[in-house]
Design a binder for these strands. Structure first.
Length: 469
DNA sequence: TTTTGAGTTGTTCGA
DNA sequence: GTCGAACAACTCAAA
């Protein structure tokens, strides 16, 4: 080993020091070690100034920086375009290798390919590690050597190939040869300096690794009841870990370890959800065109006829369907939406409002703190019946039935639509159907009348989707 | 090559 | 109110 041997660890969506594959690999390579996080202008320029994710990322980066300083190193911070800044930084620091954890999204693949090519030209190397999945995108293939496009066979293959060793957290490396940060890249700029003044969103979950680990611990006790409780948005039945998995403040192996630590139907059900995550990840990897159009070719030419004013009402949570409106307000206010509600509002946008699923997908992408391209696209295409393993087109969620079933006492609705708190448990799901409303409550004034009639729109959706053949 | 079984999350209708 | 059947075939994946 020469004294000039140096590596650069590039943090992206893996904002933790524990159980981080690229960190383990970089440390194992020996030599001097630098670490960097880039606020990537190529990504940030598309985000609104009140984006809820930036405060979360900023907090996690600050934690990471403090953690590295406690270990004798530091975190370099750049506000730049990653594709050009990383190779330049590697040159400036004299690093022969840049370590990072593999990212499967189309933009990331393109960016990493550009970085790898630049590094190669200057005699350096980009080393990408498997970290955010248990199985790489091409590790599980059908007997024909083709990618899986149906969940259940994929899930069976996943479980068959799985070994607990694959989900065992890696720990932390022995003290590495951490290097201090050059003065130019030492400071963590405040959010306002990055173009993101305080967000108007009040996230449901606290940011940072400590908060993520706390959630994980708390969820361990709820896990046995996960299978049933997870469907009720008014109950604390879900883990709330999605945003932590998105930014890596909790690792996938830590989550898997919890799922495997219990032998009950809740734990098994949750493991399936984690497998869904990998299913959609590998799907988008093999079929990147699905990011911008219907997976099923026969649905690429659908003529959506919904009004723009309906889309605006959907975004704002004033469609007149309480469960839909409460869900959209949860999204707008907290940057999060319960999974059951994501299905309900997606079905409503596509099948009731007859609006292109991609507009809903884009709205979720802008608002969801846990936004993940593969999972979001997969979910929307499932709900829109345009996906690989989609809901059949004639299965159209009834927003009132769903509301009665999964929020029977209107607990969730009341939380986000206080104007309906005075309605009884029956009327709250469909105020326009109530025989009597509380005195002083006027439909159309206190709360909107439904903007569409579900029974009518359902027939239109059946006609629209059914005639494609 | 052919056959066989199966496919996240539902709704509506009629008895 | 409860229950079972119909909804439409089609494609995937494995035997």
């Amino acid at each position: 080993m020469t004294t000039t041997n140096a590596s650069l660890l590039w943090f992206r969506r893996d904002l933790r020091l524990f159980d981080n594959t690229a960190l383990m690999e970089a440390a194992a390579a020996g030599g001097r070690l630098f670490a960097v996080f880039i606020f990537d202008r190529a990504i940030l320029q598309h985000l609104p100034a009140d984006d809820a994710r930036l405060p979360f990322i900023h907090h996690a980066v600050a934690e990471l920086k403090a953690g590295l300083q406690a270990r004798g190193g530091d975190l370099l911070i750049l506000h730049d375009e990653a594709a050009s800044a990383i190779p330049a930084l590697a040159t400036a620091l004299g690093c022969q290798r840049v370590y990072a954890n593999r990212d499967y999204e189309p933009y990331a693949r393109q960016r990493d390919a550009a970085v790898a090519a630049s590094l190669e030209r200057q005699g350096a190397e980009l080393v990408l590690c498997k970290d955010q999945v248990v199985f790489e995108c091409s590790q599980l293939l059908t007997g024909q050597g083709k990618p899986y496009t149906v969940f259940t066979p994929y899930m069976r293959a996943w479980r068959k190939a799985f070994h607990p060793q694959l989900a065992t957290p890696l720990g932390e490396p022995a003290p590495a040869q951490w290097q201090p940060a050059p003065a130019a890249h030492r400071a963590l700029p405040p959010l306002a300096a990055l173009g993101f003044p305080a967000s108007s969103i009040t996230p449901a979950a606290k940011p940072g690794r400590e908060a993520g680990l706390q959630l994980l611990q708390r969820f361990a006790r709820k896990l046995p009841h996960y299978k049933t409780l997870r469907d009720y948005p008014g109950e604390p039945g879900v883990s709330g870990l999605s945003v932590h998995l998105r930014f890596g403040t909790v690792s996938v192996r830590e989550a898997m370890s919890l799922a495997l630590s219990q032998q009950n139907e809740g734990a098994d059900c949750w493991l399936n959800e984690l497998i869904w995550r990998e299913f959609y990840q590998q799907l988008l990897w093999h079929f990147p065109e699905a990011a911008t159009q219907s997976f099923k070719p026969e649905y690429r030419q659908l003529q959506f006829t919904g009004l723009d004013s309906w889309f605006d009402a959907w975004c704002d949570g004033r469609t007149g369907y309480p469960i839909v409106d409460a869900a959209m307000r949860q999204l707008n206010q907290t940057g999060y939406m319960h999974n059951r509600l994501r299905m309900i509002v997606a079905s409503f946008l596509v099948k009731d409002l007859l609006i292109d699923w991609r507009r809903g997908e884009a709205y979720f992408a802008a608002k969801l703190m846990d936004f993940d391209l593969a999972a979001n696209n997969g979910g929307w295409q499932w709900a829109a019946s345009t996906g690989c393993d989609a809901q059949p087109y004639f299965r159209i969620f009834n927003p009132v039935t769903q509301s009665e079933k999964f929020d029977p006492e209107g607990r969730f609705i009341r939380r986000y639509l206080p104007e309906l708190a005075c309605l009884d448990n029956k009327a709250i799901h469909a105020p326009w159907q109530a025989k009597t409303l509380p005195p002083g409550f006027v439909l159309g004034q206190n709360y909107p009348e439904p903007i569409v009639d579900h029974a009518v729109q359902r027939q239109q959706a059946l006609a629209l989707f059914g005639k494609q053949d």
